[in-house]
Simulated scan of single mutants.
Amino acid sequence: MNDQLTFDELRAYQSGRLSGPARHRVERLLLENPFYADALAGLEAMQKTATNVSSGTMAEQMADLRDALHQRIHESANKKRLWPLWIATTTAAILFMLAMAIYFIFFAPKYSVKPKPAVPAKTTVFQTKPANSIDQPFSVYNPS
Rank of each mutant, 00 (worst) to 15 (best):
49 T>I: 14
79 K>Y: 09
134 I>Y: 04
79 K>C: 04
106 F>N: 05
76 S>W: 03
46 M>Y: 09
72 R>T: 01
127 Q>D: 12
5 L>G: 00
4 Q>G: 00
79 K>V: 04
132 N>L: 11
69 L>K: 11
90 T>Y: 07
48 K>A: 15
8 D>C: 07
93 A>H: 01
94 I>M: 05
95 L>R: 00
132 N>H: 05
51 T>W: 08
83 W>A: 08
60 E>P: 01
110 K>E: 08
54 S>K: 14
61 Q>T: 09
14 Q>N: 07
129 K>P: 06
89 T>Q: 03
44 E>N: 13
54 S>D: 13
140 V>R: 15
124 T>I: 12
3 D>E: 13
77 A>H: 06
80 K>T: 12
82 L>W: 05
130 P>G: 03
128 T>I: 08
32 E>A: 14
13 Y>R: 05
18 L>T: 00
22 A>E: 15
120 P>H: 12
13 Y>D: 01
110 K>N: 09
139 S>C: 08
64 D>K: 13
91 T>E: 01
69 L>C: 13
108 A>N: 00
85 L>S: 03
101 A>D: 02
26 V>Y: 05
77 A>Q: 08
46 M>G: 14
59 A>C: 06
89 T>E: 02
68 A>T: 10
138 F>H: 15
19 S>F: 12
66 R>E: 15
23 R>I: 07
9 E>D: 04
81 R>Q: 05
56 G>P: 00
86 W>D: 02
1 M>N: 10
114 K>A: 15
29 L>A: 03
129 K>S: 08
140 V>S: 12
137 P>A: 11
74 H>L: 07
53 V>Y: 15
87 I>E: 04
49 T>V: 15
58 M>P: 01
131 A>C: 09
56 G>W: 14
48 K>G: 15
12 A>V: 00
108 A>T: 00
74 H>R: 10
